[in-house]
Simulated assay, not measured.
Amino acid sequence: MQIFEGSAVAIVTPMNQDGSVNFDQLNELVAWHLTEGTDAIVACGTTGEAATLTTKEQGQVIEAVVKKVNGQVPVIAGAGSNNTAHAIELASQAEQAGVDGLLVVTPYYNKTSAAGLILHYQAIAHAVKLPIILYSVASRTGMNITPAQVKELAQIENIVGIKEASGNLSQVAEIAALVPDFVIYSGNDDQVVPVMALGGKGVISTAANVVPKAMHDLTAAMLNGDWATARTLQLDLLPLIHALFKEVNPIPVKEAVALLGKLEANYRLPLTQPTAETIEELHNELLSYGLEV
């Protein structure tokens, strides 16, 4: 089962100055992505500042995205937690909202054992009928999903893919070899071409918040076997991608979307405004890439 192929944006969550969610700007962002060719939308992921949203707010954001998309592309909801019961609550809430799939990160902070990781995902998968994409990003969570664990989890019917953000291409290759039918998505914007060259079906992207058409075109080129075009797009994007991760995500990308005039760069603590140096670099790289700021 494949939820989507191509470029899925891990969409930012616009906020007002008081920290409340700005649903008008969220709707405008979703509409823009639909016109720019984004292939799927991930709501309430890391880039969407889900860690600072309440469970109720996450439900409201997901419902708003589902309503605005209106079936035009798949909507995937972030539903990860270091508390399995809370992850099930988030997953069930998203299922009721009508999403097409779930993105479920490994437990973080308290983490777990190898056996606990399997049981965590089993419990979530058995609580819902939706297809689930695993999310492996040890740089944030302190927990890697090993290829052997992916193989074991792939035996669960509704665990269908993985967002692989380890940065380890050898690990991606091993997953592809061990579980040939398992869907792999790049979790790193600078590794889309190599991950898709190993059989990946696309990317769950931070950069797509700023360059949705370019990310769509990059993944489409790879899916169509036009590796030369994809390689050019990937390398042309590198300076901008580096600027988008100059500070902890999603601080720079939200500022970049604001520089494009599509939202106000408001954050909830502990996230805060980027430095003047970061803003200048973002401004310069957006201009260099040919965007209007």
Rank of each mutant, 00 (worst) to 15 (best):
Q25M: 14
I118D: 05
L169S: 09
G48M: 07
N144S: 15
R231C: 00
I133W: 07
A276K: 11
Y108L: 08
D189Q: 05
A221K: 00
A243D: 01
V253W: 00
N249Y: 07
A197C: 12
A64P: 02
L244N: 06
A165T: 03
I41G: 02
A51H: 04
S81D: 12
D24Q: 10
L218V: 02
I118E: 09
W32H: 15
E36C: 08
T229P: 02
V179S: 15
D39N: 15
I132Y: 01
N110S: 10
T13F: 09
L102E: 02
N249E: 07
A230E: 03
A214K: 01
H283M: 09
V253N: 01
Q96C: 08
A197Q: 07
T219Q: 01
A79C: 11
L218A: 00
N249L: 08
A165M: 09
A214T: 12
V293T: 13
V248I: 14
I204V: 12
A43F: 05
S205I: 10
I175W: 06
V42F: 08
E63F: 03
G71E: 11
A50F: 11
L218H: 00
V69P: 01
N158S: 12
L240Q: 02
P107W: 01
L282Q: 03
S166W: 08
A87I: 11
S20D: 12
A77P: 00
E281D: 15
I279V: 15
T219D: 00
A77V: 02
V160S: 09
M222C: 13
G78D: 06
V160K: 13
A148K: 13
M15Q: 12
E292L: 11
T219W: 03
P239C: 08
G19P: 06
D226F: 05
M196G: 04
A258V: 09
L271Y: 11
